[in-house]
Design a protein around this nucleic acid. Sequence first.
DNA 1: CCGCTGATTCGGCAACCGTCAATATAGACG
DNA 2: CGTCTATATTGACGGTTGCCGAATCAGCGG
Lengths: 126, 126
Amino acid sequence: MSNQQVEPDAPCCSPLVREPLTEDWAGDLARMFKALGDPVRLRLLSLVASHEGGEACVCDISESFDLSQPTISHHLKVLRSAGLLDCQRRGTWVYYWVIPAALQQLSAVLGEPAAALAAPSEVATA
Amino acid sequence: MSNQQVEPDAPCCSPLVREPLTEDWAGDLARMFKALGDPVRLRLLSLVASHEGGEACVCDISESFDLSQPTISHHLKVLRSAGLLDCQRRGTWVYYWVIPAALQQLSAVLGEPAAALAAPSEVATA
DNA sequence: CCGCTGATTCGGCAACCGTCAATATAGACG
DNA sequence: CGTCTATATTGACGGTTGCCGAATCAGCGG
């Protein structure tokens, strides 16, 4: 808790600890957080994100779960609808990757203290 | 900043983009994200966090919503059960405040890419 | 063309969630 | 004590979610 009085450099990601969220924005953010509010989806996202090359096909990651393949597909769709993932079909397989800006936005909303502490100067522009 | 109570063997904020989350940790995080996955709770948290003094009593923030008082109370309980809020009774009123370490932990899990990009030296990896 | 494999969509079911009205508890004040 | 205010708990109801099996779609190769 040292020097947090950094000037409001980014209205786009004003952290929720500084001022109340507007209803619209809260709804927007909640949709993303809700997508993360499931252990399967969280692991799914992590598996995709940490996969070599930053992307993974369904057949690869679905082996890590004890769930039916339609269920995995459903969760991927939820993550994609929330704007956290994107995908592309290449031949027989469909590859998924994370959208870094989305995670970063959520992180910024939550983590002004940490973000300001670690990187007060600049944030990677999305 | 006090240390965060994460798993002892885990690197303090191993981001989900670097390696797959363990099932246990994913479940833990998912419970917190799920609590944030509702616009009312998100605004509630933001209102409490941004309130003067970092704490607020229910009667104060409940005016911002068009919901019944039991519903507000329920949402506050969810946030508290998730470890995002804590509360204390003072006389007739109950005051709530956020637990910064919790928000910071979530932020760190999501946002390492940005932090690492901006300040790689801070992670002590050299 | 047909079959094969990978992935999504559909239909249904049990469990969960958000909401409210009613009720209960905790403290303040007479 | 009784009552009043502030907050929490309970019970119920409709909507949503997570899961699966079955059906369907999209490419690949014979």
